[in-house]
Design a protein around this nucleic acid. Structure first.
Lengths: 340, 340
DNA sequence: TTTATTGGAACAAACGTTTACGTAATAATA
DNA sequence: TATTATTACGTAAACGTTTGTTCCAATAAA
């Protein structure tokens, strides 16, 4: 392993001081009136010696790590995997790096991850919180860390977030079911006290009530496949079955499908299904699932932008952004009006 | 933002020297015969001051970053997302952190990512290479970086790898098709000169030849959905269609399904399909796809283990590990023998 | 001639650790 | 008693940067 060159080597070889070398290599040559000749000489020597700055020394000196953290509930969930992917590439554009943490949708893990990652002198953090607690996040922010929530968030705090307009998304999905003649609809929700979930429930109920529909149910308590599975199983036990299920996440929808298959209930003939979240695999399911698609890419891009305006320009005023969702009609909802 | 405490603060408050504080906090108290009383005092003060070590100073001093990088072709692919997830948690157990890079299955991106990440003084790297080139990886290793390939790898190099036994996997999948009466089988391959692909082709052909089957084809050139789609489209154009398709990855299989749906070819009635890679969504596709499941979790765990035996114990002898795959029979292969 | 100004560059401290090498006091041994 | 070992801890350099301050020479202005 050959000697890794540093600015001292370059200083010696060029005959200039460490200071001058550092300034040139940081692009501050002109600012400090270093002559063009000197700049070129130093740059060519740096090139020649294959100089790579030691980020630790830089970070130690400047206190900036050029690192942000992203914490998601589960990398295995394609929805969050996409978030990770987009955030990663967006952050790279600023020449920063992303540390990814996985909370497994568990608040204790989330806290541990937050602690562990923030020991790395983060410049910022993007988090999809479990949805249960926010004190540890507020504390982090009070310590001076730039922080923003995506997808899941909290209301009434000075904590920026970017998410989908969950109310509107749920409302339009519900409306769609109603317009297709469904009058007994069950929705299977996720983490109950999480803001997106609350909004979705509100959207759902408002659509029901607004259309004068009284027979609806809201069950479930986790954005998990298991929750979708269990609740669907239970729904199918009822004497009077709903004609449609509204799953509040793709994972929940997977659980629904599993249960429906087991019980040999055909979609959409015997049960309609609509879900929040889009993902490529949804097209390959039979039938392709009609869904509320979230603008994941935009959410991430905007979040990164806000984060960096906070980090770089110290714009700390909290931003609350909700983006429109999109109803993607595929083939899992039956039109009951045409039946008879 | 309150002052972040450091060991100097602790030293002052406790009355002991920086050295002693450092030693205690590094768990070297006993080694350096620091009295229990002192240790406890220092530890409690550290606790009280909410001390978090500055990793940059540590890293600068020790030259170790406690950081490894993972480069995958695409985080959006659930197969690699799972790898990322497992590697991440395994690495965390060593108190190291994982930097994740995405090459988008493009060798130029891969090289850029490798360069960019290695400027962070990595202690090690785990990579799923694009499969095209290996010079840049060998160079990295020669510079002293601990490096290991997973999933895709190169033969004949001093470069450790952990992967599935692709030959055996492809062989057993092919055998399975043959045993179910298929005599005209098409396989859609991935990146041609990548070792796993070569092994899979070999396994496929050996199974064909070994069973005296002469009508088979091998087409395709990428582990992508598009490749699967296009090649399937082409296959369906042929006067004599194969009775089964063997897709060399889950992405390819998705493309196959898309094309088969478009052409209204029923699986498995009119076309059997078997694929490499398992993933949860495969169960929800209609019909559930029979597949060759790779032991992703084990691959990652072993890779991390080898990597750390390299980093921590300087065991640099290259390790070549191939793990057995598993045929998961679901419902996408028709038994032709029972037809008549 | 004296005083400013400016271009070009260097000095030296600081960031928060780790660690090779002490040292002083006491205990054990010869 | 003199020597050595052991216990318990400290000194100070080093890691590779960045940066506020200073310096010097040359030129311009007064």
């Amino acid at each position: 392993m050959q000697h890794k060159s540093n600015i001292v080597d370059i200083a010696e070889k060029s005959g200039f001081s460490i200071t001058t070398v550092s300034r040139v290599l940081n692009g501050k040559g002109d600012k400090y009136r270093i002559s063009k000749a000197t700049q070129q000489k130093i740059e060519s020597i740096a090139e020649e010696l294959n100089y790579v700055p030691n980020e630790f020394a830089q970070n130690l000196r400047t206190g900036k790590s050029k690192t942000i953290a992203l914490i998601v509930p589960s990398l295995k969930n394609p929805f969050f995997a996409e978030i990770a992917s987009v955030v990663n590439t967006e952050v790279r554009k600023y020449n920063y790096i992303t540390l990814i943490g996985d909370s497994d949708d568990n608040i204790e893990n989330e806290k541990t991850e937050v602690m562990h990652l923030s020991s790395r002198n983060l410049d910022g953090m993007i988090i999809v919180p479990c949805g249960d607690e926010w004190e540890h996040l507020v504390k982090l922010q009070e310590k001076g860390l730039s922080l923003i929530c995506i997808d899941r968030y909290f209301e009434g705090l000075d904590l920026s977030f970017v998410s989908s307009d969950n109310y509107e998304g749920a409302y339009s999905a519900s409306k769609y079911l109603i317009e297709h003649g469904h009058t007994f609809i069950a929705c299977i929700q996720g983490v109950r006290h999480s803001t997106p979930n609350i909004q979705r429930v509100k959207g759902f109920i408002d659509a029901m009530v607004g259309s004068g529909i009284t027979s609806y149910t809201v069950t479930g308590d986790a954005f998990s496949e298991q929750n979708g599975y269990l609740e669907t199983k239970l729904l199918l036990q009822q004497k009077v079955r709903p004609t449609a299920i509204f799953a509040f996440s793709n994972t929940i929808a997977m659980g629904c499908i599993k249960a429906l298959k087991e019980e040999k209930v055909k979609v959409p003939e015997e049960m309609s299904l609509i879900t929040f979240d889009d993902n490529p695999y949804l097209d390959y399911i039979e039938p392709p699932l009609t869904c509320i698609s979230q603008p994941v890419e935009d959410i991430c891009k905007i979040a990164v932008k806000i984060l960096f305006s906070n980090i770089l320009e110290h714009d700390v005023s909290p931003k609350y952004v909700l983006l429109k969702t999109q109803l993607k009609v595929k083939a899992s909802v039956k039109n009951l009006d045409h039946v008879l």
